[in-house]
Design a protein around this nucleic acid. Structure first.
Lengths: 214, 214
DNA sequence: GGCTTTTGTCACCGATCGGTGAAAAACCTT
DNA sequence: AAGGTTTTTCACCGATCGGTGACAAAAGCC
């Protein structure tokens, strides 16, 4: 690793070091998982001393906070560009939301890891991550929904929770074991099946034909 | 804990000790989570020396194997009694299966923890757990389905995977954070909402009226 | 030049981890 | 009671963990 004996950092740049630590935190989370997420591993990945994590971020908690804000921005950016074509009814909105969510989770290992972390360890650290992520998601969904109203005769809150939970879990399970249950989830064709299933379900639940406002 | 100085076990009973270790393993998994799942914690909970884990189970791997078989039995038992009333069509089968699955997961912290573990750490240890659990689930589903045939015009494999994944994820999320997204999942009333949503979805997808074979 | 402040490194602490070798204590057989 | 076997505990190893205090070196200021 070190050619020169004890190379004391090429340049002295606090901002760059802070960023290196933050990037290292993401890297460790993605590549090693949250069980290895600690000052030692992060400092090792960042190529600096762990003391700097305490000095610059006030320990792991502060670092996670910084990572949380970084994350909400990333979440917003990844999702933003999807809502292009105008939506005609509530079912179409749900459909597009689910597909965008699925692709976003599939594309970002970091988001995935953090979502998993939130589920597994209800620690105060993950609470803040969950809140910031949830807020970003909420904001995005609202901006996407526009003024479309859900049909009143059904509990769309529960139904949407079910659908979103399904998307999240399938991506998580696929990432861990390459599938869910007996269904393989690896190739794009596999995911096309899921997408088609989601669309079919949404259309069955929110039929586009019956445009009943109120 | 010890009144007498170094109480070297009240009775010497290998079978009882093995069972104590197995129970301690479950207890640690449920109460501390899988991050604390190790020989030290288990031996501490079992009230014996960790050496016995190596001697009787050949280490953590063997212990997890034993726990896996124990688990598949538990899974079968917890699910068995649900399939009482005869099912008339495929949609009703899916409906009852989902509700049984939801209640089973809600009732068993151990099953929940292991399901979460499988998702988070794709280690060889969890692979075996996933396989045994998946096999038990498969067996139960087949016995419940009987000779009911799904409608051929839709990808019931993908749709059922979506629904089962949703159930699993909702219970996981509820256990960790008391809800999912903005939806609280704590009281029985909250879960009634989810159950009603599931039923509504299944009935929309597999309409009981159109009994079309092929 | 000297001086302080910032930036980074190093050495160390106690605790816990997984894992092993050997002694001690109970049980069984004779 | 003697000897051997099984069951259990103890003591120790190296490694890693989170965390802290002291020190070295670069940068800014006078």
């Amino acid at each position: 690793m070190n050619t020169a004996p004890s190379s004391p950092k090429a340049t002295r740049d606090r901002a760059a070091t802070e960023r290196a630590i933050l990037d290292a935190a993401k890297q460790v989370l993605v590549e090693q998982g949250f069980t290895c997420f600690g000052v030692n591993a992060i400092a090792r990945a960042a190529g600096c001393d762990k003391q700097l994590i305490y000095r610059y971020y006030g320990g792991l908690d502060g670092l996670v906070d910084a990572l949380g804000t970084e994350l909400s921005h990333l979440f917003g950016e990844q999702l933003e560009f999807e809502s292009s074509r105008p939506l005609e009814n509530y079912g179409e909105f749900v459909e597009q939301m689910l597909l965008a969510l699925l692709r976003t989770f599939r594309a970002s290992d970091l988001l995935l890891r953090i979502a998993a972390w939130e589920i597994l360890e209800p620690s105060p650290i993950t609470r803040r991550l969950a809140e910031t992520r949830g807020a970003a998601l909420m904001h995005w969904v609202r901006s996407m929904r526009g003024d479309l109203e859900p049909p009143e005769e059904m509990d769309f809150g529960a139904i949407n929770a079910i659908l979103i939970a399904a998307v999240q879990h399938l991506v998580l399970s696929a990432h861990a074991t390459g599938g869910f249950g007996g269904v393989p989830l690896d190739s794009d064709a596999d995911w096309k099946r899921i997408e088609a299933g989601l669309v079919a379900m949404v259309r069955a639940i929110y039929p586009p034909s019956s445009l009943g406002g109120s």
